[in-house]
Design a protein around this nucleic acid. Structure first.
Lengths: 359, 359
DNA sequence: ATTTTTATTGGAAGGGCTTCCAAGAAGTTA
DNA sequence: TAACTTCTTGGAAGCCCTTCCAATAAAAAT
């Protein structure tokens, strides 16, 4: 049924080796032979069999991405970078969404099956120790994004510095009663951002009021979710009149949830409470969030680059790439805009009114 | 290096056929042999080679999803359903993000390479005619989601009815000066929703004022984007005092953009302009959008089911599944809330309020 | 005890490609 | 012209499985 190189070889009156060489751009094929073969291949509508190639070549031209399932826009934006880069080098992407921590092992196992993929990009979750131990036996490169393990290549963001910058921005706006809402500190980024927050206050000799720090104990997505943000803010609102005038929130999605909670109480952002968050997902713009931008798209691209490099040089020492997040000033922090450009203005209103049109 | 069934056969002192049978749960293997083989396999940490299996079995246990690249949350929510279902049946998912219409052909070609995938799920875009013609030569099942072609299985939503329901909801609230913002009518859903809108007005003998209809000519994502919605509303605002008091917008993302434009002019939703949109992406909740819900997650799952069925019965007539979208009443339409409890609104209400999509 | 049936097993063939080796053709050099 | 290189080519072997067939062993029936 399907056309194979044998069919082509027969029709073109050449050997299968020659046909193969033509398709692999091997230099030692005369122009005439090449053209003859290509003509026949085209006529028969030949398509190489990817699995047969994979088996013979001992590689798959496929990478796997293991991602905590995309309820979270942060991952999607990274994934975009991954996808674009991957298809630009002619590879395929196998996607593993992990809905529950238990599935991590299963995903890793499936992906690390011999000959399944040529590399794994592992996102945000803590790499299980069991895997780290076994890994040396496999020959598959793996790169971590938004998570860290000293034995592997990783691409992360300077969470500490970023948190510090965010907090200092609030300080620079004159706030002294500053709080923080953090995701579950079982997650490294959450924990480190909290440390950065503390450090910033300390640096400016502002006393840390522990009651101003709400640590989420939500486990789903490690608390990097709107719900978690909403709940945390509800909790913080119990502070009543001593509510902080400014809050650093460990992610944009949480900030969005937190804003909902504030709105419920009739509090306005930034007038009553100034907010700075982290990530700069696309939505941050809608909500006018001042936030620490992570170059997510770029991180995705780099992950692919790095895995390719790692394949070429498996024994090099693990590389750690860290990005410095960038402060993006919008409206939620209440900073004066130097240039009131329209786009930002648009979203300013959303924060206060549109999302809850009526109550 | 890598362990093969030959290694296991040797160690376990059995034949390779027996080893294979053990792993394929073939019934005719004695318990002792099976256990012996499994023990050795475990000891050697055997992993079957997926490509070799694929080659021998003539199938891949992999599906491809071809998706307009996910700037649009609508797709992501469908993709979640797809992913969950796919991994629940032990298959893998190859993801093709299409950033530009030109890439559609390339993606289809790659996916339809012999032996690459066992099925294709194709989203939202118009299937190229060239492919439709060639398709019969391939033996790969394909199912369309959110797009239609009479020769293929498809899963869509009743856009006409949905648009009509949405519009009638506005009519039922007493509006008579009703407008519509639609995405690019090159997209079928956009066009059909417009037709439904017209039909609803006609049915209630409200004259259609063409100036109240803004058709986006944005090509990116066929105008199903925030920017497109923003621009369209800017356009509509030129109507000045004769601005419609209610607007049906062909998607949630556009509605979000449109609301921004309204806010800019100091207009409030729903007080000044009532809005109903379409999709019910997760964000709709946040913006309090009254919208027509599409069961996206479910559509994703069904797509997988259907492709499995189609594999079993390739010659059956194409099946067309259509969901009736459901009106979800929130705030943007100005309808009275039954329970003004804002907490419910933020988190739980929508979930309980809306029945599961019917089959 | 003998024949028939059924359960288990080994391993060749085959799936479609790449790659290596050997051989023949063509081109160089002296 | 002879001896040596360099190109080009065909096809066997190998990648790792599944599956089928034939063979053997065990169980059942006579």
């Amino acid at each position: 049924m399907a056309i194979t190189i044998y069919d082509i070889a027969r029709e073109a009156k050449v050997g299968i080796g020659t046909v193969s060489r033509v398709f692999n751009s091997h230099p030692n094929v005369t122009k005439e032979t090449r053209e003859k073969v290509l003509a026949v291949a085209k006529r028969l509508n030949y398509q190489p069999h990817v699995y047969a190639q994979g088996l013979a070549r001992q590689r798959t031209n496929t990478f796997a991405a293991i991602i905590p399932f995309f309820t979270n826009y942060f991952f999607i934006e990274i994934l975009q970078g991954v996808q674009e880069k991957i298809s630009s080098i002619g590879f395929d992407l196998i996607l593993h969404g992990v809905n529950h921590p238990d599935e991590i092992d299963e995903s890793l196992r499936r992906s690390s099956r011999r000959g399944r993929v040529d590399g794994i990009i592992f996102f945000s979750m803590r790499l299980p120790d069991t895997f780290a131990k076994k890994w040396k036996d496999l020959e598959i490169p793996i790169v971590l994004v938004d998570t860290f393990h000293e034995e592997f290549d990783s691409i992360t963001v300077e969470n500490f510095q970023g948190a510090q910058t965010a907090t200092e921005h609030l300080i620079s706006l004159g706030h002294t009663n500053i709080g923080m809402i953090t995701a579950n500190v079982k997650s490294d980024p959450a924990r480190i951002r909290l440390e950065g927050f503390r450090a910033a206050l300390k640096k400016h000799t502002i006393e840390v009021n522990e009651r101003n720090i709400i640590v989420s104990d939500v486990t789903k997505l490690d608390g990097f979710s709107r719900d978690a943000g909403y709940l945390a803010m509800k909790e913080m609102l119990k502070l009543g009149t001593s509510l902080p005038t400014a809050i650093f929130i460990s992610s944009d999605v949480q900030a969005i949830g937190a804003i909902s909670a504030l709105r419920e109480k009739g509090l306005r952002v930034p007038d009553d409470v100034a907010i700075v968050s982290f990530d700069d997902i696309e939505l941050a713009q809608h909500f006018g969030l001042t936030t620490m931008r992570q170059p997510m798209h770029r991180m995705g691209e780099l992950a692919v680059d790095q895995i390719v490099k790692r394949k070429q040089n498996p024994s090099a020492l693990p590389i750690q790439m860290r990005f410095m997040p960038e402060l993006v000033v919008r409206q939620s922090c209440g900073a004066k805009k130097i240039s009131p450009n329209i786009e930002d203005y648009v979203h300013h209103k959303d924060i206060n009114e549109v999302a809850a049109p009526h109550d």
